[in-house]
Design a binder for these strands. Structure first.
Lengths: 369, 369
DNA sequence: AGAGCGATTGAATCAGCTC
DNA sequence: CGAGCTGATTCAATCGCTC
């Protein structure tokens, strides 16, 4: 029993709150298998003497020899593996992780992700439309950051709203390179003195795409490096719940204020395109039972090359071959598989109509109106 | 003394040759501190499972070669660290490394690069204009690969032709995300049976940009995973020397044949610009990188009165004058300005075609993005 | 001749459910 | 857990053929 093992009552998950403290310790207090998604924007300074710092807040202390370098990489790796392991414990079996970083840290993070048993789905490039130039002209303009999207394990089946992303991309499959501007203007939070409230505030557009792609309404999103709460703000807008962890009181204060102003989009607005995978199953035999097609009637492939006869039990038969609409189609095509719903057609008014049209008719009847 | 330490005479560096054997062992036989650049396209450790079919039931020809199979992450890491360490020994103190990979391996490679004392200058994204789609609709289109550019050490001062890259990018700083098509068509080498000679041949445009950016004419470029010799072919065209190492006899044979046909561009053509320029959208240099026009090739004005030669960085030169297509055109016309895109023509089948036609071709490729 | 159509192909960790 | 069945799913570019 878990309660006996931990020596404490099973903790409950505090939701839509910002938790204060070190994320590794705080995550330890959260129940295992309780969140749908982790989005993390960890610090990436490798100089771990004392505190971790954001890149522009950090002094770049020259590392003079190999031992120092190894020491700081080792410290960063230890920190990275610790929070990734806790995050993995807190994730549901079919949960997923997003981490964002730059070349300073992303390779170490990515290797740790793999070593800890996560399974990478994609790496995604955020190509900035308006990056900061390299003023000294010694390197290329650092115009992108890298995100890693990983399931909790190889067996995990993370949420992926394929159709929704396809729509976001004007009808063609979403690619792994995303072009978006950095966070500026009114979106960029300022402190009382007018300075940036946080050095690395991410654009809401980025989180919007991440959450539309890999969560559903009502899901819980954990952000262990909450900062000024971009993850929470977008989650709330999209009808998701969030759990934020942030160590710095100043950032928590900014985030609280920000979140108080956020209004969720209307219920219908957060629905996304689903595709056929989510539709209810309709056996082909149902069309026969309902008299939409008759036993003995002939189906034909679109090119007219193949014909088969419908039997009373909803199987097809042709030249001694018999079986499901899929199996017979595959057999005739000599293909490993075949979607019978789109392959087979019946004739109506001289035209060929895919049997999928009849299935859609039944599905329409089944929908709550 | 090195000779005493190694117990052998200091080895000399064989240049413009393909060396046969395992790259780790072969590199051990090369003198330390002897090459200017290492470009490496190592196995990606793809870990593919079963077969994959397109929606039209055709089978995808995947990378299932023995050279891409490793028993575990640990085995892959050991291999990676071994070749990276030898490559580092062979590099000059101010030398640099490029490695290309995908999310399957690049995080492990990048962490090893850092651990071994290299110093990352940039990570670079090759965004493919025409990637293979995700046929099952289960993930994002895997539309990019990642390159790491690193100096031998933090103290190293690697070659970086900042101005040349700026010219290649039509006057604005070159970014870390590069958009290029994959290697297809006539550039893609075929074996006797018409099948692809190598499963992962890289486009010459990619190597062109890498070598223009981080080497000078006369430099020596080592490629420990030579394959069909793209690195060698582009190096020779650009007046660089190469050292190729390849284990597979079949690949070596294809590469030898390929290299025998390669002619270096003329001396003046490989000089890169030191000046500055600014202008519109599709950089002229892109036409050069993509092989639509070649360094050394002549452009001519419509009336035939003026001629200029193309250089590797996308600038033109004539009678000691050098600069962008616009600047050189203006100079020759004695005019304050000139639209090089409509002024300059190349010859095809005896007819003069404005280079703008090529720009339009590229724009057509870039449109849906 | 040139437009248009069909076939082919590329570094890919590519399904989910029931029995 | 494995076997077996249902059934969902692709974009850009090149090449070669027909009209």
């Amino acid at each position: 029993m878990k309660q006996a093992k931990t020596g404490a009552a099973a903790p409950s998950l505090p939701v839509d709150e910002i938790l204060s403290g070190d994320c590794i310790e705080v995550m330890r207090s959260l129940p295992e298998g309780s969140v749908d998604l982790v989005f993390a924007d960890p610090p990436y300074n490798l100089q771990l003497q004392g505190e971790l710092h954001r890149p522009d807040a950090s002094r770049v202390d020259a590392v003079t020899n190999d031992w120092d370098r190894f020491d700081s990489f080792a410290a960063y790796d230890a920190f990275t593996r610790a929070w990734l392991a806790e995050a993995r414990r807190v994730l549901k079996p079919d949960g997923a992780l997003w981490v964002i970083g730059s070349y300073h840290n992303i390779f170490r993070v990515g290797a740790a992700v793999q070593d800890l048993g996560y399974w990478i789905q994609n790496d995604v490039i955020w190509a900035k439309t308006n990056p900061m130039p390299n003023f000294r002209g010694t390197r290329l303009t650092n115009a992108h950051e890298t995100l890693i999207w990983a399931s909790r394990s190889q067996k995990g089946r993370p949420t992926f709203n394929y159709e929704a992303l396809k729509e976001l991309n004007e009808g063609t499959q979403m690619r792994s390179d995303w072009s978006m501007p950095i966070c500026t203007g009114h979106e960029r939070l300022k402190d009382a003195g007018g300075a940036k409230a946080h050095p690395t505030q991410k654009p809401e557009a980025l989180l919007h795409r991440v959450l539309v792609a890999t969560t559903n309404p009502g899901d819980v999103v954990l952000d262990p490096f909450f900062g000024t709460g971009t993850t929470g703000a977008v989650a709330r807008k999209l009808g998701r719940s969030f759990v934020g962890i942030e160590r710095e009181a100043e950032y928590r204060a900014v985030a609280e204020k920000r979140l108080a102003k956020v209004r969720p989009y209307e219920g219908a607005a957060i629905e996304v395109s689903r595709g056929k995978r989510a539709a209810p199953r309709v056996p082909f035999g149902t069309l026969v039972e309902r008299g939409m097609l008759s036993p003995g009637e002939e189906l034909v492939s679109l090119n007219g090359r193949h014909r088969a006869k419908i039997r009373a039990d909803g199987t097809l038969t042709v030249k001694g071959v018999a079986g499901s609409i899929h199996k017979v189609g595959a057999e005739l095509l000599g293909a490993p598989s075949c979607n019978g719903w789109t392959y087979w057609h019946f004739k109506r008014d001289g035209a060929k109509v895919p049997i999928d049209a009849l299935r859609e008719q039944i599905r329409a009847e089944m929908r709550p109106s």
